[in-house]
Design a binder for these strands. Sequence first.
RNA 1: GGCGGCGUAGCUCAGUUGGUCAGAGCACACGGUUCAUACCCGUGGCGUCAGUGGUUCGAAUCCACUCGCCGCCA
Length: 684
Amino acid sequence: MDLTRPTFYITTPIYYPNDFLHIGHSYTTVAADALARYKRMRGFDVMYLTGTDEHGLKIQQRAEQAGQDVHEFLDGIIAWIKDLWAKLDISYDDFIRTTEERHTRVVEALFERLIDQGDIYLSDYEGWYCTPCESFWSERELVDGKCPDCGREVQFVREESYFFRMSKYVDRLLAFYDAHPDFIQPESRKNEMINNFIKPGLKDLCVSRTSFDWGIHVRRDPKHVVYVWLDALTNYITAIGYGSDDPQMQAKFERYWPADVHFVGKEIVRFHVIYWPIILMALGLPLPKKVYGHGFLMMRDGKMSKSKGNVIDPKLLIARYGSDAIRYFLLREIPFGQDGVFTPESLVQRLNYDLANDLGNLVHRSAAMMHRFVGGAVPASSAFGPLERDLAALCEQTVAEVEQHMDDMQFSLALGSIWSLIGRANKYIDEAAPWALNKAGERERLQTVMYTIAEAIRYASVLVAPFLPRTAEQIWAQYSVEPEQTTWESLRRFGTGAAGRAVAQRDPLFPRLDVEAELEALGALANKGRAPSSGTTAAEPNQPGPSQSAPVAAAKPAAQNATGLTPSGGPPEVGGKPRIGIDVFDQVELRVGQVELAERVPGADKLLRLMVNLGAETRQIVSGIAQHFQPEALVGQKVIVVTNLKPVKLRGVESNGMILAASHEGTLKLATVPPEMPNGAIVK
RNA sequence: GGCGGCGUAGCUCAGUUGGUCAGAGCACACGGUUCAUACCCGUGGCGUCAGUGGUUCGAAUCCACUCGCCGCCA
């Protein structure tokens, strides 16, 4: 650690490793990573912490199911998680596991201290327990006296428990909110916290259990296991040396605490802005500066679940597209703080438009011109003209914008600013037209233009580095950018980049993807991975009260009607349309076809993609009949196809025709012809 | 049921304290260009800014109510 630099301590939730992580967890961790990398570039001594919350009944049971010792089970998952973070280029400085001695010993000690102080007291926990759900419910939460989740019988349980006297600190907590209006982000969460939990009277928190064994035992009363939050939240201080005997670790704690920001999913905001500050008050420690509750990453067709077949293993995505592409999508597509929806279409579009077309092509076309026009190296510039000054101003302005957005933790906006610059650079090339200068033999002007392009690319590469670390490195290597020209400070003045640097011609940074092929592949990717089916956060799912929702939650099933191609029924009712002459009808070409391939269009619940053999050709047709037919059942079927319809795109898939079907009161049957009719035969 | 929020172009959304605020990106149409990954650049249409009433010289922007949607809690 460098004592001369200001510190920046950032954390993710510690994830619950009862299963493999999914792309929702990756989202939090990638966001924290981008901020950590940015702060490092800005000269901060960054401490970026992530880790795992390894205690609790669920873990115990999962290990038993797997026939493994708990430690063995955990080590396997933790190795998988660390491998995921490595694949995503997560630059964490420490990874804490709550089963580590540096954590358990301190939690034991502070539990004792809090009892001695009177902040923790022994009492009885009473509630209703649903055995299958492993959930506790209060009297009011029950629905008709039954479990509100599953509707089954619940049992009244009374269990001796330790409680944390939260109520004692409420006034101080409210005063803290007042003094630190930015503590809770986004701000809308603050009202929810105050109105729902504090105003009605903050209840004391149950902090121990006797019903399971896998956890940190209370020293003076070992039948009790420290329950969830006191164990999980304190990772933020134990990891950096709180309560350590080692003077070096103590110094580390003094240096980094309080944390600058805790990134958390919105479902655990409450624990981080109410219980955690109060625990810290009880320990006499300063409070973190900010808690940022970000939104969920959702799937279009609902919550990720194996039964729905929409779970995507982040490692498979990374393997297919690269970590930078996934990082870019997550940070650009979803405004931090809001929910976002992951769809194969949006992923492929972001990668094609933003990465391949804009950034990738800028870097690629510029390198080609360096070779064609100026000998493969960045030339020296002479005086800038208006075009150059304009671009230079935007470059410098973009730096300021990105800094502002990063201060606000608005990653999508920061990337938006950077991409405006990239767009402007592409436009500059068109305006300055180096190829025309080359033809006209205007060497000096050509060199200035090529220098300016290289400098703009250097700006883009440095700005993009916190988000797309690999891409930045690749650009620097390709354009031979010296390390001192890749620093944030090197962006203060446009035109300080060195001339004479060799430029290599490389393959494009990002391949242009074939949309259809990718949608198909992404559909196939779903559910293939060993992705989890339940949420994992710093919360354990079996605590009293409503069970925790997963960071990946259900998107509202949007009303998605296929436009343009309705389930190929006839008119809404007989006589519902005006009469036409044979000449009008004759404009419609109908032919016999045979379905060769049928599959669902990923993300669309009504659409099937069909390949239909029409004799002379095989056509792709998208039809809104998925709710009536299993794809397999259609293969081989003879159908009647409208062959002269204009092509349309449905869910991004081109449909080149329409098949006929009859519908009546919710049922739908294909219009067909006997199998002996050859494909391509005219129907009239 | 309580508290809070939202409803702006086909889609996703920006729009500080009311007066070039009717915008951006994607999609769509047309045109240009050729250095480049059929890429890039330009131009264009589209919106009664959910509805109704009110305050005001003037409201997407303030107030009231209605409808619809969402979040947290119960």
